[in-house]
Amino acid sequence: MSKLILNILGLAALGILFGCEKELNKYEGKPTVYFYDAGKIPAFNGDNPKDSTIMSFSLAKAQDSIVNMVISVTGAKSDVDRPYKLVINPKSDAVAGSHYEILNSNFVIKKNRLADTVKIKFFRRTEMQSKTYLLNFDLEENENFSPEMKYRTISNRQVSLVSYRWFVNDIIKKPGRWLDGYFGTFTRKKLLLMAEVLGIEPAYLDASVSIAESTAYGKFMQRYLNEQKAAGKTVYEDDGSEMMMGVSVQ
């Protein structure tokens, strides 16, 4: 009986050893490459991993914007530079040279590093006022890295580790603190004129402007419009109506 028990224990030990060897084998081969924003560990509450970003010019004065996209790899650091393969997904409809430009000359994890930053310059274009354009990046396998880790699940939501999407537009939105009583009916043309005349960023009216500032801004803009009209340069909205500020500042 004891010999039978010993045989059974021996087989069990071999089975465990074989199972462990199979598990270890999963980690052999190339390091994996992934988008940092998708694979990161949240640093604070609300810092959620993501595989896409909306890049909107709607409340900005700038005509272009440079953004960073970080690529990370697993495994140990290397004492040589290691190129990785980053490609544009054919689903993208953003046009290189017109809607964006990639500022990196190559895609490389530098020696003694585990990450690289891809710099993308987006250009503000008129067609973005009515359409959102997609720029979709994919990480693919090459001689140095494998995109073996494809997804992670967070709160029943799948986040891609190897595909990242940028949605870029200039579709205007009404700022959160736009008060019709001071600023009148919201229009894109009025918002941009206010930003120009007042020397503020449109985004300032979204979350930062105070009631006192809104009153002052409304009165200043109405005085400006009145002066333009008196000079024979009446400012009109795109629909042909005269631009007016709110009833509280008339």
Results as ranks from 00 to 15, higher is better:
Lys3Pro: 13
Lys3Arg: 15
Leu11Gly: 11
Leu11Lys: 03
Gly19Asp: 12
Cys20Lys: 10
Glu28Val: 07
Glu28His: 10
Gly29Asp: 01
Gly29Ala: 07
Val33Ser: 00
Val33Lys: 00
Gly39Pro: 02
Ile41Lys: 15
Asn45Trp: 08
Asn48Leu: 15
Asn48Pro: 00
Pro49Gln: 11
Thr53Lys: 14
Phe57Gln: 09
Asp64Leu: 06
Ser65His: 15
Ser65Ile: 15
Ser65Gln: 14
Ser72Thr: 05
Val73Thr: 09
Val80His: 12
Pro83Leu: 02
Tyr84Ala: 05
Pro90Gly: 10
Lys91Pro: 02
His99Arg: 13
Tyr100Lys: 03
Ile102His: 06
Ile102Asn: 06
Leu103Arg: 09
Asn106Met: 11
Lys110Pro: 11
Lys111Met: 04
Arg113Trp: 09
Val118Pro: 01
Lys119Leu: 11
Lys119Ala: 07
Ile120Glu: 02
Glu127Phe: 08
Met128Pro: 02
Lys131Asn: 08
Lys131Ser: 06
Tyr133Leu: 02
Phe145Tyr: 11
Ser146Thr: 04
Glu148Gln: 11
Glu148Pro: 05
Met149Leu: 14
Arg152Pro: 02
Arg157Tyr: 07
Arg157Val: 12
Arg157Ser: 13
Arg165Pro: 00
Asn169Ile: 04
Asn169Cys: 11
Ile171Thr: 01
Ile171Trp: 02
Pro175Tyr: 08
Gly176Arg: 10
Arg177Glu: 10
Gly181Glu: 15
Phe183Asp: 08
Thr185Gly: 14
Lys190Glu: 04
Met194His: 13
Ala195Asp: 04
Val197Cys: 06
Glu201Trp: 10
Pro202Thr: 08
Tyr204Cys: 06
Leu205Phe: 10
Asp206Lys: 07
Val209Lys: 03
Ile211Ala: 13
Ala216Glu: 14
Gly218Thr: 04
Met221Thr: 12
Gln222Val: 02
Asn226Pro: 09
Glu227Cys: 00
Glu237Gly: 06
Ser241Asn: 05
Glu242Lys: 13
Met244Gln: 12
Val247Gln: 11
Val249Phe: 03
Val249Tyr: 01
Gln250Arg: 15
